[in-house]
Design a binder for these strands. Structure first.
Length: 653
RNA sequence: GCUGGCGUAGCUCAGUCCGGUAGAGCAGCUGAUUUGUAAUCAGCAGGUCACGGGUUCGAAUCCCUUCGCCAGCUCCA
């Protein structure tokens, strides 16, 4: 019998008979490893434990500790779910069932949509199948036989998949759970060896999806579930889902009196006074950041003739998302973006190289006619404003400008206590302009990222067709990622709009445009902040920073004077003048997450002080009004950070 | 936009399956209470049951339309 040499991760190697299974290798190393083994990695490829080793190879055994384990579990759980569904609902057709970042799903064609009771039944059935510790078996079927088999079983979608995925092959791989009567699926695998390995899974929701995600195809029922390596991890995940629900900005926005919606203005928020205070604080903060960075604030029209959109190219590719209006027979559109307006503004005067970079910052509202089904709270709206700006630079200024931008991004996210990551997207296969120009631009972006000392991912070929870009993702307090900042180079629009500057050589040159936003849309960023802080904004952002709480009516004059003094000092202050006990007023203020409660009664009125109660931290004792104002202003100026730069905010979890 | 679910007082929800005069808590208002660090007591008021149509002696409830909200519609066998 011939032998194969198996190399192990520790550098050792063993000679074993050809055809030895991965599971045998695990057994050979140690019985305990064999017990824990879920799959193998042979020459870098993830395979089943039942994979036979026919030639020399490096082998690694996958266990719960391996990075592949989670996806393996989830994909196997998807099969287990499909087995449960086909058992409970005979005649169900199966589509695809992949693992995802959060869990897994499986698409089915069923007679009627699933109800919550069905999902419970499915989960029960899965548990039952798991407890039976059934084997996942890989079988190689002749292609035609497999197609005939699935066709006969009334699974045309599987036949279609086999056709598409295995063209030119003679055999296709299928996986059974127990046997082909119980469950069989066309699948590359691999899987965990038996259903008993799956110990922590949950069926979550059902909704509809289309075959291959295309609305022209047949609608299917998608059942989502999640699986983890331990009950502890699963529980943590479910708790996280609950936590996310508690922080939902739509719920907190109403409870905190920030904003509301009306069915007659779908996708457009009504900002109440407190929400407006927050909005304005953000908008002014961005102005404070951008003015010293060389930006000028501009306001350009909200409505433009269709001619502009034809020039910019929006008319041909963005029209479905534009709100059109008619005036005296002319078709106009509300602007979905600021760029074309900024180009017209740039072109309204002769520009010299001495002026560049020119940086136009604008916060006026934009309108995008998003499909009704994608609207969601403040995160997906039809009307919003951005901390939008366009920088007009020379080719050689790109690197420095981008580096300045990265520093701005770092500063802003630092002020909000949001961790972030960056990714650089380079030239796609279909692109506009010269390869040399792209290479030059990409090199400058890379150099700028390197100089900034930031770690970043490379997204090859993911740039826009008009230029490369850098995107930033922030991670909120409960670990969710949001794309906010973007820095995009644009070579196309300066051509379209024939933008020029006069160079040092006294001839005309083409500037490069950098589209950039740091927080993106104020609406969406506020949603992120609400959920990040769980509604408990740091002092500098809080819509109401302090509320004065008089003990009894006779303290109202003094309380009013305190409130006036706070407002005079630039603080956002309220006065609770209701005839209620102090505990009631405090409870109310706590629920509204006001950072400071200032209790005033006889003692305070006499000594011209306030009793400070902190939202987090309770009673801080008496303080003179001036001392309170001074410390509050200091905290606002520091934006909640200690003087060493670290954040005082508790890690909300 | 498409598929499914949902829409009852400002908010959270009961009542809908099985048609028969619309309910609770919180918030609001009035009165009493004048209060010291997370809910004082009593009373009152508040609803074309999203909108429009249909079935019926009778519709919040059953059927259809429209609007809005929620979830999903990228993950590859």
């Amino acid at each position: 019998m011939s032998q194969v040499t198996v190399r192990l991760p520790d550098g050792s190697s063993r000679k074993l008979p050809a055809g030895t299974l991965v599971s045998d290798v695990a057994e050979e190393i140690s019985p305990r490893l064999a017990q824990a083994a879920l799959a193998g990695v042979v020459d870098g490829k993830l395979v089943d434990l039942s994979y036979p080793l026919e030639r020399d190879a490096s082998v690694r055994i996958v266990t719960d500790k391996s990075p592949e384990a989670l996806r393996l579990h989830r994909h196997s759980a998807a099969h287990l779910m499909a087995a449960a569904v086909t058992s409970l609902f005979p005649g169900t057709q199966c589509g695809i069932g992949p693992a995802t970042d959060e869990g897994f799903f499986y698409d089915f064609v069923v007679e009627r949509p699933f109800k919550p009771e069905d999902l419970e039944a499915i989960e029960q059935k899965m548990k039952e199948l798991a407890s039976q510790d059934l084997v996942y078996e890989r079988q190689m079927w002749p292609r035609d036989e497999a197609k005939a088999f699935f066709a006969e079983r009334g699974e045309p979608l599987k036949v279609q998949l086999i056709d598409e995925k295995t063209e030119g092959e003679t055999e296709v791989s299928c996986y059974t759970i127990k046997d082909k009567e119980t469950f069989i699926d066309f699948c590359v695998g691999p899987h965990v060896p038996t259903t008993g390995k799956l110990k922590a899974f949950k069926v979550l929701t059902a909704s509809s999806a289309y075959w291959k995600g295309d609305a022209r195809n047949q609608p299917m029922q998608r059942v989502y579930g999640t699986a983890f390596l331990s009950d502890k991890d699963l529980k943590a995940h479910l708790t996280q889902i609950e936590e996310a629900k508690k922080r939902d900005h739509r719920k907190l926005g109403r409870e905190l009196g920030l904003f509301t919606f009306h069915q007659w203005a779908p996708g457009a928020a009504f900002w109440m006074d407190k929400g407006t205070a927050l909005y304005n604080t953000l908008a002014n903060y961005m102005r404070e950041v951008l003015f010293p960075a060389g930006y000028v604030e501009v306001k350009t029209p909200l409505i433009y003739n269709k001619a502009l959109w034809e020039r910019s190219g929006h008319w041909s590719f963005y029209r479905p998302n534009m709100f059109l209006v008619e005036s005296e027979g002319e078709i106009m559109s509300l602007k979905p973006m600021n760029c074309p307006g900024h180009f017209l503004l740039y072109a309204s005067d002769v520009r010299s190289y001495r002026e560049l970079p020119i940086r136009f910052h604008e916060q006026t509202p934009l309108h995008r006619n998003e499909a009704s089904g994608v609207l969601s709270g403040l995160t997906r709206v039809r009307q919003f404003s951005q901390d939008d700006a366009h920088c007009f630079v020379t080719q050689d200024q790109i690197g420095e400008e981008v580096e300045r931008l990265i520093r701005l991004v770092q500063r802003v996210y630092g002020d909000f206590g949001l961790p972030y990551t960056a990714k650089l997207s380079t030239r796609p296969d279909e692109f506009l302009g010269e390869v040399a120009t792209w290479d030059h631009a990409e090199a400058q972006l890379k150099a700028a990222l390197d100089r900034s000392g930031m770690a970043y991912d490379l997204n090859e070929k993911d740039g826009a067709f008009y230029g490369p870009k850098i995107d930033f993702d922030v991670t909120d307090a409960i670990g969710r990622k949001w794309q906010c900042a973007t820095i995009q180079l644009d070579y196309m629009q300066p051509e379209n709009f024939d933008l020029k500057y006069i160079g040092a050589d006294n001839t005309e040159h083409r500037p490069v445009v950098i589209h950039r936003a740091i927080i993106g849309s104020f609406e969406r960023f506020i949603a992120i902040l609400i959920e990040h802080y769980a509604g408990a904004f740091p002092l500098w952002l809080a819509p109401v920073q302090a509320v004065v709480l008089p003990i009894a009516d006779r303290h109202l004059p003094y309380a009013g004077a305190v409130r006036d003094q706070l407002e005079g000092a630039g603080l956002r202050a309220d006065l609770d003048r209701r005839q209620e006990k102090i505990g009631y007023k405090i409870r109310e203020a706590q629920l509204h997450k006001v950072p400071f409660m200032l209790v005033v009664g006889d003692r305070e009125a006499e000594t011209r002080t306030v009793s400070v109660r902190e939202r987090s931290g309770g009673d801080k004792g008496a303080s003179s009004i001036d001392a309170f104002i001074a410390s509050a202003r200091d905290e606002i100026a520091r934006k909640g950070k200690r003087s060493d730069g670290a954040s005082e905010l508790p890690a909300a979890s």
